[in-house]
Amino acid sequence: MGSVRTNRYSIVSSEEDGMKLATMAVANGFGNGKSKVHTRQQCRSRFVKKDGHCNVQFINVGEKGQRYLADIFTTCVDIRWRWMLVIFCLAFVLSWLFFGCVFWLIALLHGDLDTDYKDDDDKSKVSKACVSEVNSFTAAFLFSIETQTTIGYGFRCVTDECPIAVFMVVFQSIVGCIIDAFIIGAVMAKMAKPKKRNETLVFSHNAVIAMRDGKLCLMWRVGNLRKSHLVEAHVRAQLLKSRITSEGEYIPLDQIDINVGFDSGIDRIFLVSPITIVHEIDEDSPLYDLSKQDIDNADFEIVVILEGMVEATAMTTQCRSSYLANEILWGHRYEPVLFEEKHYYKVDYSRFHKTYEVPNTPLCSARDLAEKKYILSNANSFCYENEVALTSKEEEEDSENGVPESTSTDSPPGIDLHNQASVPLEPRPLRRESEIGSRR
């Protein structure tokens, strides 16, 4: 089982795998120059863009038009607004034209077009017409509009002379109601789609790998820009990579689940303020055997998904993003964004995407760390350097704002901070800030 798991979770494809794949392509008759073999020097295209759209195009789909027309309502909801407006206008105009032609044909076959009612006051002739005051196609078209929109100006009306005319008036009224219901329903469904809710759900630009509770963890940050909550919010993550099976089958995008606390339930989050999602790199993680150097040379993509129900409509929305291997910062942490004021908490989104480097973060893999092949620094050293990194950030910001350097908390000259780390230190809580992250 261990060997199978290692093969499945191998992220960085070796040169031997690339040569094996190329040999397979030639042997199977696919070596026509169009096949692409992804190596370390040639990274694959992003499968999920940063804005959440999937970078996929469908080609050679059989009976595409028929399949889309069979699900016309979903098609109308998914198309762009400009095409929705075109369909909206065409549906009414074509129905008016169709029934206008029908009423014109009825008048033509009944002989109503030969009668001039402007110079004739004989009401008996008017009563013999199928539709009064309809003696041309324009008049028939206007009567069709008046019937379907129930305008009723009063000059044109159907008589009991022709039952077919009466039937067409009733039929057009029913068709008009159906068109109204369909168009209004599609427009309302399109307006109520929770897709735009994703514009106020954000992911951090970069993911980070750092120590948390004595273990290497992959972390990324999510935030909600609205005050309205995302009900039943939960997160998922998958690692996408290519691999070759033991039988020699090439899988271009193998999807591997990344555990973010599904078993323990901590994948469900209360997204009021930005939260750091934590994936513990343990023996079940696809990143277990990867060191910093392996991450730098790897070719994979981590897709992160945030799902929840919109509070206003109770409709489920899904926000997506992805991180390539070069977008994962090893040995970094996110800057705090949640600050405790006197009577409330304040979230500073200008710090949302910012990170700071944490010294002495192990550069080895989580496996080597678990097997004690890498000796961690003293816990006080880690905490102290973590505090120094934050303090230096604040000093830089104070210097930019014009604060005198004498007010900063610099260490005395001639003292090495790293050498001082081995000395037991008193706890130094942050002056006014605390970061709330997901705790395992």
Score class of each variant (00 low, 15 high):
256 I>Q: 11
234 H>G: 11
309 M>T: 09
214 G>E: 13
4 V>G: 08
209 I>G: 01
310 V>I: 13
78 D>T: 14
352 F>I: 08
270 F>M: 07
202 V>Q: 11
35 S>D: 15
100 G>I: 01
347 V>L: 11
183 I>E: 05
83 W>F: 04
432 R>G: 05
210 A>M: 08
336 P>K: 15
127 S>R: 05
329 L>H: 05
278 V>P: 00
27 A>Q: 12
93 V>K: 04
363 L>C: 13
96 W>H: 02
127 S>T: 13
404 P>W: 12
83 W>I: 01
3 S>E: 15
196 K>I: 11
307 E>P: 01
148 Q>A: 04
396 E>Y: 09
383 C>M: 14
356 Y>P: 00
71 D>F: 05
283 E>L: 06
224 N>E: 10
119 D>A: 01
333 R>H: 07
284 D>P: 06
37 V>R: 12
238 Q>G: 09
200 T>Q: 06
281 I>P: 00
314 A>K: 06
77 V>S: 11
105 L>F: 03
221 R>S: 01
411 S>Y: 03
335 E>Q: 04
387 E>Q: 02
178 I>P: 00
12 V>R: 13
210 A>G: 10
343 H>T: 11
278 V>I: 11
125 K>E: 12
51 D>I: 03
182 F>T: 04
97 L>G: 02
99 F>W: 04
388 V>D: 15
168 M>P: 01
28 N>C: 04
387 E>C: 03
338 L>D: 03
67 R>Q: 04
427 P>H: 08
225 L>K: 14
229 H>C: 11
307 E>L: 08
289 D>T: 08
365 S>Y: 00
64 K>W: 04
308 G>Q: 05
291 S>A: 10
13 S>A: 12
49 K>I: 05
374 Y>D: 14
201 L>C: 12
160 D>H: 02
24 M>R: 11
421 A>F: 07
181 A>K: 09
274 P>N: 03
188 M>I: 06
383 C>N: 15
433 E>H: 06
72 I>L: 11
356 Y>T: 15
55 N>V: 03
354 K>P: 00
372 K>N: 13
218 L>V: 09
146 E>R: 04
184 I>K: 08
170 V>N: 01
33 G>F: 07
69 L>Q: 11
287 L>R: 02
97 L>F: 03
175 V>G: 04
223 G>L: 06
86 V>H: 09
270 F>T: 09
436 I>P: 09
21 L>W: 08
43 C>Q: 09
272 V>Y: 10
430 L>A: 11
429 P>M: 15
290 L>E: 00
281 I>M: 08
157 C>V: 14
296 D>K: 04
384 Y>A: 06
317 T>Y: 11
426 E>F: 04
154 G>K: 01
275 I>S: 10
34 K>P: 14
81 W>C: 03
320 R>E: 12
192 A>L: 15
181 A>M: 15
62 G>A: 15
264 S>G: 05
16 E>T: 07
237 A>M: 02
336 P>D: 15
348 D>R: 00
419 N>E: 14
89 C>G: 06
271 L>E: 04
2 G>K: 03
316 T>E: 15
44 R>M: 10
267 D>W: 06
19 M>T: 12
234 H>W: 04
303 V>M: 10
405 E>H: 06
201 L>M: 12
200 T>A: 13
329 L>K: 09
49 K>H: 04
47 F>D: 00
31 G>L: 05
41 Q>H: 07
35 S>P: 11
67 R>H: 05
365 S>W: 01
291 S>K: 09
83 W>H: 08
389 A>Q: 15
319 C>P: 00
243 R>W: 10
106 I>L: 06
60 N>L: 04
408 S>Q: 13
390 L>C: 15
52 G>K: 02
158 V>K: 02
201 L>H: 07
215 K>D: 02
223 G>H: 05
66 Q>W: 15
350 S>L: 09
183 I>Q: 10
74 T>D: 09
273 S>F: 08
67 R>D: 06
144 S>P: 01
125 K>Y: 15
205 H>L: 03
428 R>S: 11
350 S>R: 13
325 A>R: 09
393 K>E: 09
313 T>D: 13
160 D>I: 02
150 T>Q: 05
262 F>D: 04
20 K>R: 13
430 L>S: 13
365 S>Q: 01
139 A>P: 03
253 L>G: 12
119 D>T: 01
265 G>N: 11
142 L>W: 02
65 G>W: 15
392 S>N: 14
418 H>Y: 09
228 S>C: 12
288 Y>I: 01
421 A>D: 05
47 F>R: 13
303 V>D: 03
135 N>W: 05
262 F>N: 05
289 D>K: 08
247 E>L: 04
199 E>A: 14
158 V>P: 10
141 F>H: 01
86 V>K: 02
179 I>D: 05
262 F>E: 04
254 D>L: 09
173 S>C: 15
168 M>I: 05
142 L>P: 02
260 V>M: 03
189 A>V: 15
63 E>V: 06
362 P>A: 01
322 S>E: 01
195 K>G: 09
404 P>C: 12
247 E>F: 05
14 S>G: 08
378 N>I: 03
175 V>S: 06
58 F>H: 11
337 V>W: 02
157 C>T: 10
335 E>T: 06
356 Y>I: 15
434 S>I: 08
5 R>N: 11
258 I>H: 00
281 I>R: 00
238 Q>Y: 06
268 R>A: 07
102 V>W: 10
206 N>A: 08
133 E>K: 04
224 N>Y: 07
98 F>L: 13
325 A>H: 11
363 L>S: 11
258 I>F: 06
345 Y>C: 06
49 K>V: 04
385 E>T: 04
